[in-house]
Design a protein around this nucleic acid. Structure first.
Lengths: 340, 340
DNA sequence: TTGTACGCGTTATCAA
DNA sequence: TTGATAACGCGTACAA
């Protein structure tokens, strides 16, 4: 593999000149430039970005840590990050934490050793020591899908509490009183926890007694949704509606409910969370809380690159989320809702 | 940011000794080691993997190029690659080509400049010049989702021709005669092209005249599937079955068919391709050709790392694919199939 | 077991 | 406009 030194020798110039034709072609006389370029093709020269990073102390690489790429909402946000980074000629190294804090810790360590210029993290543990140390060392990073309010941390996210509230409110407006929740494990994600808080608060505001039997925590999987709803449907007084803290759980719940002999949506109204790309193609089409995952990824990338570039101050950005009503929710059996 | 030199000074040893503590701790006396480790924590030393790569000429990083992370089959394969790489302490830089060859070319260039040790590519253009140049320069890479037979290229994939054949055979065995195909654009992916070949050949072998009106090419999207099937259903002699070259198209086709007033699966049998994670949760559950995407990712990573390590010979690996019969296919209306 | 000294490919500074 | 050269942080012969 030839280097600028080889090129320089072949062209009869110094390495500095070769470097100049690469980085600021205008600063070198046309005649010389042509000589150099010719030499470059002659020895099939390939630029070494790593060596550059070594001296400029910039790798032009950022790290992106997500729970798992197989959840499509994170695939969407990843796409947003990538597209923005791409357009700024920044590479992105992807790592999955699998919702495990130890894995997240390790990824951060490894990525920093690789001299990434910054980090975008969908964290599993907002209170973790590792995030504190990033702050202490003024290492640029932004949290994604996580809204911390105030403090020295950049973040982009939505109001998960409000999302949970909206979902529940919708169900109540349809006349539902027995509303259960299938939630992602609180220990894995505080987003799910906040959605549950919104759910609980809404019930309370509408004078519905919170029944802790109506909450099931599970892992974010299709089968988790299916098994959870089946369990809930065996309760002495079974629910007529369910709020699932993501769309996979909702899709699983649809299957579970059908397997339990229910008709959808008549016998069970279902609300999801995320609005994944296939949500409107489900049967029945899924009512859900939309999260602009792609845009969030883009914003996070923009914020991070600004922090790296201009050493700008931490910013928390709250994106809009909204209820998308489709076919999976309907009036409660027996009791009439606002529509009845 | 402190370096081994700082650590060395603080510990009163040479940089070589610090380096040894990091890379082969056993080769240094315990007493010395302790001194060094103490010094490391004292100055909050962080290892610089980039500098190491610079001297060892190994970045311990590989590049992964896929069409788009928002297709869940590529998310699965990406996960496979990542998990294998992770376990070998290799980082993965991810890039999306969006099915565009120019983008793929550019990614390869950028990743090589970043000194990745190798590349895993789900290519959009098997005949492209850039792949040839990788071969010529003996740069380690393996193709994923692409089986080239023989030649100096490593690849892991499935037999797409056979997949198309199996899908069609299944439909024919159910008594279908008007079988259409909704395919991903052949210009974007030769996988789709090979599946179509299998489809065509199977029709021919069973004495069914191939009707080119029954083929629609579209982009790999939900709406592409929906719109395509709607168009096909307006044919004078509409199809009773459809083979879609991936599961997104199939899901879209389900929606389109319903919107056209059909009952599923009675009025239209649908076969997909990939067996994405939600396939069995669709309504009706999708009959499809299973592709072991996760395992393929793992194999590709293993192959690549072996090539990098041992300079091993190129290998083509064909993974198993199989027909998974679920609920979306049934006996042809009117005509009785084998089951009738 | 430990230290010295050089090299890796590039940029940046300063001088010409 | 161009050249000479130091510097970046680490690994590794080779020497001690």
């Amino acid at each position: 593999m030839s280097t600028i030194l080889d090129v320089a020798r072949l062209a009869g110039v110094s390495t500095a000149t070769v470097s100049r034709v690469i980085n600021s072609p205008d600063s070198v006389r046309e005649k010389t430039r042509e000589k150099v370029i010719l030499a470059m093709v002659k020895c099939n020269y390939k630029y070494n970005a790593l060596a550059r990073g070594f001296v400029t102390k910039k790798s032009n690489t950022i790290g992106l840590i997500i729970p798992t790429i197989s959840n499509s909402v994170f695939a969407e946000s990843t796409l947003g990050v990538q597209e923005y980074a791409d357009q700024k000629n920044i590479k992105v190294i992807l790592g999955n934490s699998y919702y495990k804090y130890s894995q997240e810790e390790n990824l951060i360590k490894v990525l920093r050793e690789s001299q990434v210029d910054g980090l975008i993290i969908t964290t599993t543990n907002l209170k973790g020591e590792i995030l504190k140390s990033l702050v202490d060392e003024k290492f640029p990073f932004v949290l994604l899908f996580s809204t911390v309010k105030g403090g020295p941390v950049s973040a982009v996210g939505i109001d998960n509490y409000r999302g949970g509230y909206l979902a529940t409110e919708h169900l109540i407006s349809l006349g539902h009183k027995r509303i259960c929740m299938v939630a992602g494990n609180f220990s894995m994600t505080d987003r799910s926890f906040h959605r549950w808080h919104g759910y609980k608060k809404c019930l309370r505001n509408d004078g519905i007694l919170y029944d802790k039997e109506l909450l099931v925590q599970t892992d974010y999987s299709l089968s988790g949704g299916r098994d959870s709803i089946k369990k809930l449907l065996t309760l002495p007084s079974p629910p007529t509606a369910v709020f699932c803290s993501n769309d996979y759980l909702a899709l699983g719940a649809m299957k579970g409910a059908r397997e339990a002999g229910l008709n959808l949506p008549e016998d069970l109204s279902i609300v999801g969370f995320d609005d994944m790309q296939t949500a409107s193609y489900m049967v029945p089409a899924l009512t859900t809380i939309r999260q602009p995952a792609y845009e969030m990824g883009q914003r996070a990338a923009k914020l991070l690159l600004e922090m790296i570039e201009k050493k700008s101050k931490p910013v928390q950005e709250m994106m809009d989320s909204s209820l998308i009503v489709r076919e999976s929710t309907t009036i409660a059996p027996g009791g009439a809702g606002e529509l009845g």
